[in-house]
Simulated scan of single mutants.
Amino acid sequence: MAELKRRAAVLISGRGSNLGALIAAARHPAYPAELALVLSNKADAAGLDRAREAGIATAVVESRPFGRDRAGFEAVMQARLDEAGIELIALAGFMRVLTEDFVTRWSGRMLNIHPSLLPAFPGLDTHARALAAGVRLHGCTVHFVTPGVDEGPVIAQAAVPVLPEDDEPALAARVLAQEHRIYPAALAWAASGAARLEEGRVVLDRPMAEGAFVNPLPGPPGLPTEMA
């Protein structure tokens, strides 16, 4: 007997680049989550068309009419999620700061992806800030959402090298490719129970890989092997 898939909603505000990766992954019969709803706070979000083309139900809850009434906005949004029987939420470029009450309600069941190796560079303009800081590794993070912005326990991360010739668009493109890899995986782990939140930390029921990613590579040329 096939296991029931957990019903997931993807919340977006724009084009839904990561939404596309999630849709592609969820087409696999063995994927443990069903994308049952794509909800946006903007009626003109391009990702809504992408969802409709994929046959996924969509909903719009405009945030602007609520002004500063975040609780009122979230109450309507929660009603849409309840109507769709949603069990998991994936934030994918959802440009709203959620209230503590809403986040607490979805504790351990709401994921977000952020374009940096958290806790480094929370907030906006992560790629420009990484270049300005001169870091050698940059990347992306999937985490469970907590009331603090970009502070939730980490589920998965992917690192990319920062190359000498990089500008912001080049680095952003390299990071985005990794976002499209780890977000579908992290949602699958959460849906299957392989990643779960326990006492404020993420527990992973999967073997850990060994090794390290170093940039620049150990060297320099001529350095004895045991010192590399």
Rank of each mutant, 00 (worst) to 15 (best):
R196F: 08
T99D: 05
A120W: 05
P147F: 15
R27F: 02
G193L: 13
R174N: 04
L204V: 09
A209Y: 10
A33C: 04
P221I: 07
Y31Q: 08
E34F: 12
I23S: 07
V135D: 02
T141L: 12
L187A: 13
L88V: 11
A25V: 01
A188V: 09
G55N: 13
D166K: 10
V175P: 00
G219L: 05
G20E: 09
R50T: 14
A156E: 15
L39Q: 09
R27P: 06
Q78A: 15
R6C: 07
S13W: 10
E34I: 11
G200S: 02
E34T: 14
A26V: 07
M227Y: 02
F102V: 14
E168F: 12
F73H: 03
A79E: 15
D167P: 02
A170P: 00
H143F: 12
L217H: 02
E83L: 05
E199D: 14
E53R: 15
A25T: 05
R15G: 15
D44M: 03
N41E: 05
G67C: 03
R27Y: 01
I182Y: 07
A185G: 04
L48I: 03
V214H: 06
L98A: 08
E83D: 14
R196N: 06
L176T: 15
E151N: 03
D101L: 02
V10Y: 03
A130I: 07
N18F: 10
P207T: 03
E168W: 12
Q178G: 08
G108H: 14
L217T: 05
A191K: 10
A26C: 14
R6Y: 00
A36D: 05
G211L: 00
Y183H: 11
K5N: 15
L117W: 13
Y31I: 07
R15W: 03
L204R: 08
V103Q: 11
E83Y: 07
L11V: 03
A170S: 07
D167N: 11
A188F: 11
I86Q: 08
L39N: 10
L81K: 14
R80P: 07
G134D: 12
I56Q: 06
L197N: 09
L124Y: 06
D101G: 02
Y31H: 15
D101N: 01
E151V: 00
V103Y: 09
V103K: 15
R7G: 04
M1W: 06
T99H: 02
G14N: 01
P224M: 09
E151L: 00
V76L: 03
D49F: 02
D205G: 10
L91H: 09
S17I: 08
P169D: 05
V162T: 06
A51H: 11
F94H: 05
A2F: 11
P218D: 06
G219C: 08
E168D: 09
V135A: 01
L117P: 03
P153W: 10
I155Q: 09
A24W: 01
G16F: 04
H28C: 00
A186M: 07
